[in-house]
Design a protein around this nucleic acid. Sequence first.
DNA 1: GCAGGAATTCTAGCGGCGCTATATTTGGGC
DNA 2: GCCCAAATATAGCGCCGCTAGAATTCCTGC
Lengths: 195, 195
Amino acid sequence: MSIAERKERQRAERYELILAAARELAETEGWEAVTTRRLADLISYSQPVLYSHFRGKADIMAAVATRGFEELATRLKIEAANVTGAPDILRNVCAAYLDFACSRPVVYEAMFVLPTKIKFASEETPPALRAAFDALVAALGPDRKEPVFLAEVLWSALHGMAVLMQSERIPATGAEVRLDILVQKFRSDSQAVNS
Amino acid sequence: MSIAERKERQRAERYELILAAARELAETEGWEAVTTRRLADLISYSQPVLYSHFRGKADIMAAVATRGFEELATRLKIEAANVTGAPDILRNVCAAYLDFACSRPVVYEAMFVLPTKIKFASEETPPALRAAFDALVAALGPDRKEPVFLAEVLWSALHGMAVLMQSERIPATGAEVRLDILVQKFRSDSQAVNS
DNA sequence: GCAGGAATTCTAGCGGCGCTATATTTGGGC
DNA sequence: GCCCAAATATAGCGCCGCTAGAATTCCTGC
């Protein structure tokens, strides 16, 4: 069975090669530059090989997105776990979300902007995606009414800030100020008036 | 000069025909179905005619977006002007924004999601777009610190809710609840604790 | 009324896209 | 070492955005 195992391993390696090539090409030239021809060139195989791993281009992007969900969940959980010495978990988690969006813009785009067949808020939702959302819920703290709706609003705000900044619809200047405003609005002990 | 005037008028009519065809086709089948060939078919002219009105497909979408800015600004200003009998201007303006995004999803997409050459937050920003943003600033009420940043955060949240709902990343159920939560967070007299 | 010429519009085509039917090559099993 | 299945490549389909150059239309000046 060693031969079958080797073949399986080589297939897995080529799968990773495709994902890496797709992400790197997207990172340098954007998703619109990621074509099956260029991808095939980059991995030194012909186009149809791609279709033995993925149903099509959308499927490749979905796979990149799925990896992104895992990385995002990891990053958020690290911040959420940093209880010791970091009093403001909510701010740290929000900052981590925005930092992820900013540091991996094309992965973020595949996850949350481009059309996708990945199911959100359903039984088929990828576990990592659920975990990332749960980290958001947790960061808001206990004893909230409607914790899921509240987290959805927070997520919406974070997502809006991420995409509007990325597409230069709001200026990059002021990201910190906006984050402060947002966090203050969602803090469980917020009592601020006229600010 | 009557002949030149007539030609100019006919050109203007055809321009409108193209915009209307683009918007309608996008509304029924999405922007990815809006191709120069189908557009040319719909207006009963050949493809190159499109290029005598617009630089290309992106330019057509930008024109649709520009019309959208005007409609959005109008809708928001109507709500903002409804002082009499409507105490909660902020909620009405936010609801009007979301309603616009929901009722004209593809126009909204062209305005705020798809790549565009339209400049935001600069001297070249279309007046209607500035007006729409100003309506958001006004809806937040006077005597705020950092009114522009605050409005940007509110806009981010509204935009996030709009796009995440449209792409089915958050469920359509709960739109009202989320709007209530958001407005409550941004109300100038918000004193809520643990909600 | 009509010829000339500019303005307008169309035909046809380029290179590239996602995707796939079919041909070719590769490599393990006997 | 041959056979056959699995793996891979070639070549092509119908579509895309866009454009050069041909064909047509229609205003102008006589």
